[in-house]
Computed example of a mutant assay.
Amino acid sequence: MIIEAYKDEYQDGIIQLIVGIQRSEFNLDITADDQPDLMNIHNFYVTGKGNFWVAVDNDQVVGTISLLDIGDDTVALRKMFVAESHRGKDKGVANQLLTTAFDWAEANQLKAIYLGTTSKFLAAHRFYEKNGFSEIMKSALPERFPMMAVDTKFYKRECSE
């Protein structure tokens, strides 16, 4: 398994992974059309201090993570998804994806990483908290934070100065 920066050749696999998890596992009424960022990943995420990474195993997309530049040396963590077959501490895919994002944040001298998630992603809440994120009130989010309709829980992680 490798983790690499976004390439157009992965777009279809990314959409299948993300929408599949959202709809099948969490019964969210969301489609690819509801997420225009997925149709233009390069221009949406790979700008400023943002980026998008893909975990690939045997030419199949098995994980994603992105950092969206929201200004003032801050980013929003978005689109962190791992295929069910590649989840778990023993697989380490989620940790590798998050480490990649943290390394990027440090190299780009970011101040903080924010994220929003649904209350349904209980395992994700524990994962974020174990990795230095603290829950915050919606009112504490930066003005440019990209709110999703399904977001009900919010987190912040300070980056090293």
Results as ranks from 00 to 15, higher is better:
A76S: 15
L115M: 14
K89Y: 07
D34A: 10
P36A: 10
Q16T: 08
K49F: 08
I14D: 01
G20V: 13
G20Y: 08
S119I: 04
T152V: 04
E9I: 11
F44K: 07
K7L: 10
D57F: 10
D37M: 10
K156S: 14
S139M: 03
E84K: 15
D29V: 12
L122G: 01
F133S: 01
D72Y: 11
A140C: 11
F127Q: 01
F154E: 12
Q109V: 07
G132L: 09
L110G: 03
G13L: 05
F127Y: 02
N43Y: 02
E9Y: 00
L77T: 08
V93K: 10
A94H: 03
I65L: 12
E158S: 12
G13F: 05
T47G: 03
Q35D: 05
A76I: 11
N51G: 10
V56M: 10
L77E: 09
G50F: 06
F154A: 06
Y6D: 07
N108K: 06
Y6S: 05
I15N: 00
P146C: 05
A101S: 11
D29H: 12
F154S: 09
G88E: 07
P146D: 08
A5D: 12
I136F: 12
R157P: 02
R126V: 03
A32G: 06
R87I: 10
N108S: 01
A112V: 05
Q96R: 15
D151M: 02
D103H: 07
N27R: 07
D37H: 14
T99K: 14
R87E: 11
T117N: 06
G88A: 07
Q109I: 05
G50A: 13
Q16V: 09
E106A: 11
E135A: 15
N40A: 15
D8I: 03
Y128K: 05
V62H: 04
T31L: 09
E4I: 09
E106P: 00
S66K: 08
G132P: 03
N95P: 00
D37I: 07
K156E: 15
R126C: 01
M147C: 01
G92R: 08
I21G: 00
A107S: 11
K91L: 09
R126F: 05
M1V: 08
I136K: 12
E9F: 01
R126N: 05
F133A: 04
E158C: 11
D8V: 07
D73R: 14
H125E: 14
I65S: 13
V82G: 02
R87Y: 06
A140S: 15
A140P: 04
A83Y: 10
L17W: 02
T31A: 04
A123R: 13
N131A: 06
L141F: 10
I30E: 14
P146V: 09
T31H: 08
I14P: 06
E158H: 06
A123M: 04
K138P: 00
K7G: 00
V62T: 12
Y10P: 04
D73M: 09
